[in-house]
């Protein structure tokens, strides 16, 4: 259970509370109250069913500070469609416990500099060299906006205990 599910459950409880107050504290006919019960029940059921289609797609939240890069997918900008381009990354957070690290998909705005860095990282991944990524936010000197900057390093060898 993560904070996302807790938030949704809280919203459902609010909906149930509102329905309860409507049923006990209004003078509406029981036909309307019955319809409200059925409507809220259907809504809760369909929201649970609709949760699945939302899962799996990349998120736009901040990247972890240090991560193990698994996959890269780039949508370059398109002058014809005026698409600005997007970079998708699939990675595991280095803060997660080993063995429990589940890869998560992220998306960040496209920049040529990031694309070049990811090309280099991709070449190393193809040579079976795991890549450790580090993210930091830097201010663009021209636009003044904070942008994502990534650095990639070959993953260090694991330390084995002495015999």
């Amino acid at each position: 259970m993560n904070w996302g599910m807790i938030g949704i459950i809280f919203a459902y409880l609010m909906l149930a509370l509102l329905l309860f107050v409507l049923l006990t504290r209004t003078r509406w006919s029981w036909t309307i109250k019955g319809l409200a019960i059925v409507g809220v029940g259907l809504l809760m059921y369909s929201t649970v069913v609709s949760y699945s289609p939302l899962i799996g797609w990349p998120t736009g939240i901040k990247l972890p500070k240090r991560f193990n890069l698994i996959g890269i997918h780039v949508d370059e900008p398109n002058k014809n469609t005026q698409a600005k381009g997007t970079i998708y990354l699939w990675l595991t957070d280095m803060e997660q416990q080993i063995g429990k690290n589940i890869p998560r998909a992220y998306k960040i705005p496209y920049t040529p500099a990031l694309h070049n860095k990811l090309n280099e990282a991709s070449k190393k991944l193809r040579k079976n060299l795991p890549q450790l990524g580090e993210m930091e936010l830097v201010r663009n000197a021209v636009t003044g906006r904070l942008e994502v900057d990534l650095q990639f390093f070959d993953m260090p060898d694991p330390l084995f205990p002495e015999k």
């Binding site: 996302g4 599910m5 809280f10 919203a11 699945s52 289609p53 899962i55 589940i102």
Partner: peptide
């Protein structure tokens, strides 16, 4: 408050692999 909580609840759900 429920609206705000719902709004901030969905980003933590995104990005994880789907069982579909």
């Amino acid at each position: 408050a429920a609206y705000l909580v719902l709004y901030f609840s969905f980003p933590p759900l995104l990005g994880w692999p789907s069982g579909e």
